[in-house]
Amino acid sequence: MSVPDTTVARRSSPGLDLLGSELSVLFSRRRTWAMLAAVALIPILLAVAVRLTASELDPGEGPPFLDRVTQNGLFVSFTATVVAIPLFLPLTIGVVAGDTIAGEAGLGTLRYLLVSPAGRLRLLLVKFAGAAAFCLAATLTLLVVGSLIGALLFPVGPVTLLSGETIGVAESVWRSLLVAAYVTVSLLGLCAIGLFISTLTSVPVGAMAATVLLSVVSQILGALPQLEWLHPWLFTQHWLGFAGLLSQPADLSEFGTNALMQLGYIAVFFALAYGRFATKDVLS
């Protein structure tokens, strides 16, 4: 029997098949697109508002970088990212991550997923990868839409960094991608937390709300100076820490710290999610 290589490869990795179907389900949902559209609205509203107001902003007024938008449209995506990080991005991530297992359980489709020989660990991995893919999609939406609307409404040129020095457009695209990567990595810890909460319940709304709530609570704790000893351990602590990427020379040290911390959160909460999910009696 002559079997083409491709089918062999495909058969050897049912996980990839599962991932493919998970991604196609996720990104064919109207809800996913609605959330991405809402994310895209942030830079659009921001740019239009700045364009329509005649008065010039003083430096340091409003959200970071807002006063620079009129000089350089590429700053729209940075400002939009800063504005979206505290609540909007966690909200959308919470919806996607909280829905992962609880949503299937709520719809009664979880047991069909487990009938296939994929196994529960693989299913969890695929669900986490799907949520991570959404994080990337959301941050890239901010970046791409922000850059496009910025280029449309404002002049585009060399970008003045936080250190007051200038980099070319090509370099600034690279820096923007770094910022998008930073924000995506920042949100992965929250994804893992959402995945864990999602294994606890079959009511997806509950899991979504709990995930979003945790991200808000963590940020409130991070704002209290009395709890300074706790701050290095909060998963939200480095969320806005990408200033180093917009400095000359690019400072990647906080990227590393942040990635390590998110990795810790992913490891802990993924292990907890596995413990819960692997021992759970799936009835629905």
Partner: peptide, 20 residues
């Protein structure tokens, strides 16, 4: 078998804490 599956949930946080 069931409690064995909780093992990673105990071991991984312990490992992370030890690393920290």
């Amino acid at each position: 078998r069931k409690s064995l599956k909780w093992l990673p949930a105990l071991a991984v946080p312990a490992l992370v804490a030890a690393g920290v």
